[in-house]
Amino acid sequence: MRSIIYYIREFLRPEWLKKFFFAKTAPLVTPSYFKGYPTLTDKECTGCFNCMMICPAPGGIEVLRRKDQWVPEIYPGHCIRCGLCVEACEEGVLASGRILDITRRDRTAFRSWYHLEVDDALCMRCGNCCVSCPINKQEDPQLGSSGTSSSDEVIMRIEGGRVRILHEEKCTGCKTCETHCPNSAIRVARMVEGVHEEKEVEA
């Protein structure tokens, strides 16, 4: 009996009643390092489109020409807040959470190049790709109409009855070769690799 009275007294304490009926979780604050939608810094965008090319979400980011400057625009509802565009931008135009601080501290960056691949089973050795490539034309104005060339400086040429790729690193990724190939045999792919610059050893 004593214990029942004790419990009733205990539960009638205003403090307890208040806690029981009005318990609330403290409002949650978004931490400062939260990776939200990328925002613009005051740096100037050069219109290199690195951010657009690395974005994994279709329609996540677009770099638009506004009056006389380029402005990247992020579309919520498409953007997945991965932060890759922030890392890929060499100018530091975009910012999100502490990504910029970390990439600066760890000296990480993205290196990219274009990879050319010809599917020999589809290719019919027409040479359209070699002829249409604007860099090939620059390197060897005497380029043959069948894609043969005597210059070793061209990106690719017809050699021994097939397309031989010599200087992949000169490719600008324009994809002219891809659009001129009748068989979709040649493919241009943009390759990206994360690189880590070693910290200089302090003397």
Binding site: A57, P58, G77, H78, C79, I80
Partner: peptide
């Protein structure tokens, strides 16, 4: 989420 809005990464 993005999916019912735009299809997100599946919208290709």
């Amino acid at each position: 989420g993005n999916c019912p809005i735009s299809g997100c990464v599946y919208n290709r």
